[in-house]
Computed example of a mutant assay.
Amino acid sequence: MASIFTKIINREIPGHIVAEDDDYMAFLDIMPLVRGHVLVVPKKEVDYIFDLDDEVLAGLNVFAKKVAKAIDKSIKCTRVGVAVIGLEVPHVHVHLVPLNTMDDINFTKPKLKLNDDELADIAVRIKAKL
Rank of each mutant, 00 (worst) to 15 (best):
K76C: 11
D29T: 07
V97W: 04
K113M: 15
V67S: 09
A128P: 07
I85H: 09
K73A: 13
H93I: 02
L99D: 00
A120F: 10
K113H: 13
L33S: 11
A2L: 15
E20T: 09
A2Q: 13
N10W: 09
T101E: 10
V82W: 10
L112R: 08
K109F: 05
A64V: 01
R11K: 15
P14F: 06
V40I: 08
F63D: 00
L28C: 01
V18A: 04
L119V: 01
K73I: 01
K73Y: 06
E88R: 10
A64C: 01
L57A: 14
K43H: 02
N100E: 13
T78H: 13
N10L: 14
K73M: 11
M31E: 12
D103V: 07
T101N: 05
D54F: 14
D47S: 15
N106K: 08
A120E: 11
V92T: 03
V67P: 07
V82M: 11
V97Q: 03
V82F: 09
K113L: 15
G15K: 04
D117H: 00
S3R: 01
V41F: 09
K69M: 15
A83Y: 09
G81M: 08
V82K: 07
M25G: 01
N100I: 01
N115G: 01
A58N: 04
I49Q: 04
V41R: 03
T108A: 13
V46G: 03
R35T: 08
Y24H: 04
E12R: 04
K127E: 08
R125L: 11
V97F: 07
K129F: 10
G36T: 10
G36Q: 03
V40Q: 08
N10D: 13
M25R: 09
V40R: 02
P98A: 02
R35A: 14
D117E: 12
V38W: 02
E88Y: 02
F27D: 02
V92K: 06
L28S: 03
H95D: 11
K111M: 15
V62C: 08
A26C: 09
S74A: 11
D29H: 01
R79Y: 13
P42K: 01
T6S: 15
C77W: 01
I85Y: 06
V62K: 13
L57G: 10
V62H: 12
I71W: 04
N61V: 14
V67C: 00
D116A: 14
V82I: 12
G81L: 08
I4N: 03
F107W: 09
D116P: 04
